[in-house]
C-alpha cells in the first residue's frame, strides 16, 4: 500500500471545483467505511482521494415544510438519534440503528450508503418507501432525481462525473401512517443484511392504503415489491392477510445464493419479515 494523496476541501464549492478538475483521477470519500474496505480488499489504489468529511454544510437534518431534508454527510448515528427522524420517519431511524456498530455509525454517512449502491445498504429500502429524492450538485448545476432510479446495479449509479449527492429529501410521514424496517443478518448486530424489508402505509377507515414495500439484499439493487403492495391496498390487517402478503412478496424477492445465505432462505425471510413487521406495527392499532 502506498500513501494516497488526499484533498480535504472546507466548502462544497471547493469540493466541486476539485472534482471537476481531477475528473476520473480522484475518488470521493465521506466516512470512507466502504472505500477503505474496497481499497484493502481489492488492493486497488486510487490515485487521489477527495475527502468530504469537513463539509459541515452538508451535515444537517431539517424540516422544510412537509419535507424532511438530510444533508449527504449526515452520519447514521445522527440519523438514528434525531428526534425529527424518530418523529417523522421512524423506519429510517430503525434502519440507521442497525447499521454496523457505533464506530461505523459515527463515520458512515447516508450519502455514502446511497452512493455505494449496494443492494444491502440498510437506509436505502427505508428511503425508497419514503419516496425520497436526491439532490445532485456539480459545477454545472443542480438536478433532482428519484432515489428509486439512482442505482443501476451493484456499485453502479447514474451519478455523472463531477457530481456529488448533497441532500436526501422526502415527505414526512403523517400521523396516520405506519412504517417499519426489519432485517436479518448473520448475527443480530454488526453484520451485513441477508434480507431487509421496508414498509409504509396509511390507515384509512380501518384499511391500509398507499402501501409501499421495498426489499434489500434480494436483487442486484434495492427493489420495490409492487404486487405485494397492490395486494395489501385497501385491506384490513389480519394475520391471514399478512401471511398471504408474505407469499406474494416471496415471489417478488429475487435472491441469490452466496457465502452469507441461500436464495430460498432470503426469499422466505422476505415474507417472514413482512409478517414480523406488520405484526409489530399493526397489532394493537385500533381498526387495523
Amino acid at each position: 500500500m502506498k500513501t494516497i494523496e488526499t484533498h480535504s476541501p472546507r466548502t462544497l464549492e471547493e469540493a466541486l471545483a476539485l472534482l471537476e478538475m481531477m475528473g476520473d483521477g480522484i475518488r470521493v470519500i465521506a466516512g470512507a467505511t466502504d472505500v477503505v474496505v474496497q481499497v484493502l480488499e481489492r488492493k486497488k489504489d486510487p490515485c487521489a482521494l477527495l475527502n468530504l468529511s469537513y463539509l459541515e454544510e452538508l451535515r444537517y437534518i431539517r424540516e422544510e415544510g412537509d419535507l424532511l431534508a438530510i444533508g449527504a454527510l449526515t452520519t447514521h448515528r445522527e440519523i438514528e438519534r434525531s428526534p425529527l427522524v424518530m418523529a417523522h420517519a421512524p423506519l429510517l431511524a430503525e434502519a440507521a440503528f442497525i447499521v454496523g456498530s457505533p464506530q461505523i455509525k459515527n463515520l458512515g454517512t447516508v450519502g455514502g450508503n446511497i452512493a455505494n449502491a449496494s443492494p444491502v445498504a440498510d437506509t436505502v429500502p427505508a428511503l425508497m418507501v419514503l419516496g425520497a429524492t436526491l439532490i445532485l450538485r456539480s459545477r454545472g448545476g443542480t438536478r433532482t432525481v428519484p432515489l428509486a432510479g439512482f442505482a443501476s446495479g451493484p456499485g453502479r449509479t447514474i451519478l455523472k462525473p463531477g457530481e456529488l449527492i448533497t441532500q436526501v429529501l422526502f415527505p414526512v410521514l403523517r400521523h396516520d401512517e405506519i412504517s417499519f424496517y426489519e432485517r436479518l443478518g448473520q448475527r443480530r448486530l454488526l453484520s451485513i443484511s441477508k434480507v431487509g424489508v421496508a414498509f409504509r402505509a396509511r390507515r384509512r377507515d380501518n384499511r391500509m392504503t398507499n402501501v409501499a414495500i421495498a426489499l434489500g439484499a434480494v436483487a442486484p439493487r434495492v427493489i420495490m415489491a409492487p404486487n405485494t403492495a397492490a395486494f395489501l391496498e385497501g385491506k384490513e390487517y389480519a394475520a391471514v392477510v399478512a401471511e398471504e402478503a408474505a407469499r406474494i412478496v416471496e415471489t417478488e424477492s429475487k435472491a441469490i445464493t452466496d457465502m452469507r445465505s441461500t436464495d430460498t432462505y432470503r426469499n422466505r425471510m422476505a415474507g417472514a419479515l413482512l409478517i414480523r413487521g406488520m405484526a409489530r406495527v399493526c397489532e394493537g392499532i385500533t381498526g387495523l
Binding site: 448475527r187 443480530r188 448486530l189 451485513i192
Partner: peptide, 16 residues
C-alpha cells in the same frame, strides 16, 4: 479458504 475475515467468518456476539 473462502472466508478469511471477520466480516465473512461470523463469530456470535454478546447479543447472541
Amino acid at each position: 479458504f473462502k472466508n478469511t475475515g471477520l466480516s465473512t467468518y461470523i463469530v456470535p456476539s454478546s447479543w447472541e
